[in-house]
């Protein structure tokens, strides 16, 4: 464990909690892409099946359980409890255009052609594009609630911190995983436009609205 990975995990946890609290407190999921949240639930489910097969640490296990629990709780709030506030018209990204190519790529490009490894690879590739429906929805509505931008900032920051973690681990532990790194770079690059708007607008107290 290093400081980049720890702050990355905490940033990820913060994002998940911010979103859950936003929906729960405001009793509304306006502006939130349910499709992205379903993709994140799939990402955690396919990545953390090793909860059943191997134990790494209390931290590792508890974080995985928290991530999976919060992901499904968020999907439940969006599609069941507060479904009246779900903005399906603007959440129109065709996720099949993400899941199918990512599934094919996971079967073709992986470290080991085994069930758990292919699922893990699928999860890594899917996570890198899972935020697209959310970013697409913001571009369609033309704006985002400030709390939602804080959620997105923490979520984007987490994988950027993981990139620093991988540099650290390559240098100090001569460990690196090319699949995770390439997907992590793609994932972080997808946030660049948002990061620019967040830093130039939201941090100056303005509302995030598009076109910029």
């Amino acid at each position: 464990m290093n400081v980049f990975r720890l702050t990355g995990d905490l940033s990820h946890l913060a994002a998940i909690i911010i979103l859950l609290l936003k929906i729960w407190k405001s009793r509304s999921c306006a502006g939130i892409s349910g499709k992205s949240q379903i993709l994140f639930a799939i990402v955690f489910t396919t990545r953390y099946l090793d909860l059943l097969t191997s134990f790494i640490s209390i931290y590792n296990t508890s974080m995985k359980v928290i991530y999976i629990g919060c992901a499904y709780a968020t999907v439940y709030l969006i599609y069941m409890k507060f479904r009246a506030t779900y903005d399906g018209n603007h959440d129109s990204f065709r996720v099949e255009f993400l899941v199918v190519p990512v599934g094919g790529l996971a079967v073709l490009v992986n470290h080991d052609f085994s069930f758990l490894e292919i699922l893990w690879t699928f999860s890594i590739y899917l996570e890198s594009v899972a935020i697209l429906p959310q970013l697409f929805m913001i571009s369609k509505t033309g704006e985002a609630e400030t709390i939602t931008t804080h959620y997105l900032f923490c979520l984007g920051l987490y994988r950027a911190l993981y990139l620093l973690n991988w540099i650290w681990r390559f240098y100090f532990e001569s460990f690196f995983d090319m699949i995770a790194i390439v997907a992590g770079v793609v994932q972080t690059v997808l946030y660049c436009d948002f990061f620019y708007l967040y830093i130039t607008k939201v941090l100056k107290g303005k509302k995030l609205s598009l076109p910029a």
Binding site: R5, D50, I56, S57, H111, S174, F176, D177
Partner: peptide, 10 residues
């Protein structure tokens, strides 16, 4: 190793 398999990351 360079591409060690242990999955200790979240």
């Amino acid at each position: 190793g360079i591409d060690s398999k242990h999955k200790d990351e979240l």
